[in-house]
Simulated scan of single mutants.
Amino acid sequence: MLAPIVIFAFNRPEALQKLLDSLRMNSFYEESDKYIFIDGPRCEEDKAKVDEVVTIARKVASNISISPVNRGLGNSIIAGVSTIIAEYGKAIVLEDDLICAPNFLSYMNQALDFYENDNKIISICGYGLKIKRPRGYVGDVYLLGRSSSWGWATWKDRCEQIDWDIQDWNEFSSNKQMRRAFNKNGSDMYSMLKGYMEGKNHSWAIRFCYNQFKLGKYSICPFISKVDNIGFGEEATNCKQRYSRFKVNMDIAHSHEFLFEKDIESNKRIEKLCYRYHSITLRLYSKIRKTLHI
């Protein structure tokens, strides 16, 4: 059974159109059930663009949910994914600032099937950082202790393990050793979670990653990315800067055959290469460029 495609959109009709155009190039697009969740306008100025998004969505899907109020991306994704995954047992999730390679759906569905019974895997990521495959490494994917929100999928039993309210926050935040361990997946991890708990951001992704860390689970990531994020700019919800430190090798081979390892294990070399993208140095460089609008 193909996983349903769950898309979250807001006020960027051009971005949604580009995402849908890229998905149409995929095998299994027509056969896949599609659900589009559209958040309500934040103000009167948003209304016209949200209406455009609704018009585009109605041309490609009959399963459309339009919020009468602005719920925010985090609340929309948690509620929407929970609803769909309860029915199907799995789901492929996309936001409207992404474009997909023509083999994205093949990769995601195959990986979901292959790793469904591997309980150390919490999610399948379509996005993969630009890193070199270590010499002698077998397989087209690797394990990472940090999931990506840019084109991902998971299963019902994994989703049900997520504590979105972070009920153990007081215990965790007072444990220096645990905070340090969490930051091994990126120097920004604890600060982002702290920001959410203090009401400074509304990120669902950092809560997902924290639960992933707490449960000791991994994400499957591709060496050749099946997704790119084009949503950097002033209209973006979370990525308002134009510069992105997250580089990709986008898949141009379009192969529908992928080498997955049954007993895949984490690789320290790969983890180190991925950590560089979340290092203090690169984050500082990115912040400077954001401040200078370059």
Results as ranks from 00 to 15, higher is better:
residue 114 F to H: 14
residue 6 V to R: 05
residue 120 K to W: 00
residue 58 R to P: 00
residue 288 I to A: 14
residue 280 I to P: 05
residue 241 Q to T: 11
residue 17 Q to R: 14
residue 114 F to E: 04
residue 164 W to M: 07
residue 287 K to M: 11
residue 180 R to T: 10
residue 239 C to N: 14
residue 10 F to E: 02
residue 49 K to P: 01
residue 294 I to V: 15
residue 120 K to N: 11
residue 108 M to P: 10
residue 176 K to H: 11
residue 275 Y to G: 07
residue 7 I to N: 02
residue 3 A to I: 06
residue 213 F to G: 01
residue 247 K to C: 03
residue 287 K to G: 01
residue 272 K to E: 09
residue 220 I to K: 12
residue 232 F to A: 05
residue 268 K to W: 02
residue 292 L to P: 08
residue 181 A to L: 13
residue 92 I to H: 03
residue 259 L to T: 11
residue 8 F to Q: 02
residue 193 L to A: 06
residue 281 T to V: 07
residue 98 L to I: 04
residue 43 C to S: 15
residue 86 A to H: 06
residue 16 L to E: 12
residue 36 I to S: 03
residue 130 K to G: 00
residue 186 G to W: 07
residue 254 H to Y: 12
residue 269 R to S: 12
residue 140 D to T: 03
residue 146 R to Y: 03
residue 148 S to E: 07
residue 148 S to L: 10
residue 272 K to Q: 14
residue 106 S to R: 14
residue 246 F to K: 00
residue 115 Y to G: 02
residue 60 V to A: 04
residue 127 Y to C: 01
residue 56 I to K: 10
residue 112 L to I: 09
residue 204 W to A: 13
residue 25 M to I: 04
residue 74 G to W: 03
residue 97 D to I: 11
residue 71 R to W: 05
residue 276 R to S: 10
residue 276 R to Q: 15
residue 222 P to S: 08
residue 212 Q to M: 14
residue 72 G to F: 14
residue 99 I to H: 02
